[in-house]
Simulated scan of single mutants.
Amino acid sequence: MSSLAPCFTVGSIVRCKTCFGENLSGEVVAFDLGVKMLMMKCPSSKGGGDEQTICNLTIVNLALCVDIEIVKEMQPLDDVQPPEPINIPLIRERFRYATEHRTLSCRSYHPNASPFGQALFRLLVKRFGDPAINWQSQGDHVAINILHQVVIEAPYATENIRYQGWDPKLAIYVQGIVEDFRSKQI
């Protein structure tokens, strides 16, 4: 292959031979000369016949290709519609959600807490908010501290709820959450 890779048009049929001896052929879906990547829609190895509708999308690094052949050139269309604009606010919202979810997963992990306790911790964070829930060490075990007023000790059942604050209504509310969560787990 020459140092200057051929430019491909979307819809063309291309055959590539990789340096690993693999032969790939398919329809060009996307191409980027800057990073020397080619995305092809290749026929699936399962099924077959004239009615084959399942395809594999394969990304090929053209720097690792020994030979490239354009089997059928597709003429570029004059009335090609531009792609839809990227919805940046939606992408930011998905990123924010993923970051919060990962942070919660990391915060809910404690080596001395049971998986049930960690799942209960995640549920309580969703109900009360992230800064309101913390782990509280108690020797070999850990307890869940809610708003510095209610503590749920291991094994995280309703009889292990202790309230230290001035509002017993919060303890009753937490007790209902724990009962409901425990009944759904069993």
Rank of each mutant, 00 (worst) to 15 (best):
M1P: 04
A5D: 08
C7T: 03
T9R: 15
V10W: 10
V14M: 08
T18C: 05
E22S: 14
L24Y: 14
G26D: 01
E27F: 05
A30M: 04
A30Q: 09
A30D: 12
F31D: 01
D32C: 07
L33M: 02
G34K: 10
G34M: 05
G34V: 04
G34A: 12
L38S: 02
L38E: 02
C42Y: 08
P43Y: 11
S44T: 05
K46T: 12
Q52H: 12
N56E: 13
V60D: 03
L62H: 07
C65Q: 09
V66A: 14
D67L: 13
E69L: 11
E69P: 00
I70H: 00
K72V: 10
K72P: 00
K72Q: 13
K72T: 12
E73I: 06
E73Y: 11
M74V: 05
P76N: 10
P83G: 09
P85Q: 15
N87V: 07
P89E: 14
P89F: 15
L90I: 06
E93N: 15
E93W: 14
R94I: 08
R94D: 11
A98D: 15
T99P: 00
H101I: 04
H101Q: 11
R102N: 10
L104F: 04
R107S: 10
Y109L: 05
N112Q: 13
N112E: 10
N112W: 08
A119M: 10
F121D: 01
R122L: 05
L123D: 02
L124H: 03
L124Y: 05
V125W: 00
R127A: 09
Q138C: 11
G139T: 02
H141T: 08
I144S: 03
N145F: 00
I146L: 01
I146N: 00
L147H: 00
E153C: 00
P155G: 01
Y156G: 01
A157V: 02
T158N: 07
E159Q: 09
I161F: 06
L170A: 01
I172Q: 13
Y173M: 05
Y173K: 07
V174I: 09
Q175A: 08
G176E: 04
F181L: 03
